[in-house]
């Protein structure tokens, strides 16, 4: 009963701000709504027993990425740019495509297996750490290289071209 209530609350906290992100006119507000929606997803991670992902989601998504996003919102354009029309001419087609996708997904849901009995929620941080440094060690090293490349790429793209 309590679980159902928490789930409903988190679903509202996730989906309503997400819908506002793509419909609201002011992109600064859209970025702030994105924080709310990502926090809702973090709550789902906690419900699913993914404690480490819960912390990472709050720290990295709701904290890090949205702060960079807000910085770029403020650096690219003045507040009067936030008041123009935000939907393009294809928004009706986009709505139709999304509706078709919803219909396809709804048709697929009946083929899913029914609810199963699941074990109790336990902490998974230790399991995840062992997995990352044992079976997944190669992707782990590869992703550190990707992050380094992203760092260098960001610096490269944003520096002002000198002497041009």
């Amino acid at each position: 009963m309590i679980e159902m209530a928490v789930f409903a609350l988190l679903a509202v906290l996730t989906i309503v701000p997400a819908a506002l992100v793509v419909t609201v006119k002011n992109i600064f507000h859209a970025a702030l709504f994105l924080v709310l929606s990502l926090t809702g997803v973090a709550g789902f991670f906690a419900m699913l027993g993914a404690d480490f992902l819960f912390v990472v989601q709050i720290l990295l998504y709701a904290g890090g990425i949205t702060v960079i996003l807000l910085f770029v919102v403020l650096l690219s354009g003045s507040p009067k740019d936030w008041l123009i029309r935000q939907m393009n001419e294809q928004w009706l087609g986009a709505l139709a495509a999304s509706a078709v996708f919803v219909a396809v997904l709804a048709g697929l849901f009946q083929y899913l297996p029914g609810p199963e009995s699941i074990s109790a929620v336990g902490p998974t941080t230790e399991l995840l750490g062992v997995l990352l440094l044992r079976e997944m060690v190669l992707p782990f090293e590869a992703v550190s290289l990707v992050l380094l490349a992203a760092l260098v790429g960001a610096v490269l793209f944003t520096r002002r071209g000198e002497g041009k």
């Binding site: 989906i15 992100v21 994105l34 996003l69 935000q86 939907m87 294809q90 986009a94 996708f101």
Partner: peptide
């Protein structure tokens, strides 16, 4: 969440909100 993000990618004019939709 996915469908909302898809709609955002297809229908928004601002590149920043397209990136936000990709995050969704």
């Amino acid at each position: 969440l996915f469908v909302i993000g898809l709609f955002g990618v297809l229908a928004r004019r601002n590149v920043l909100t397209v990136l936000m939709s990709i995050e969704l």
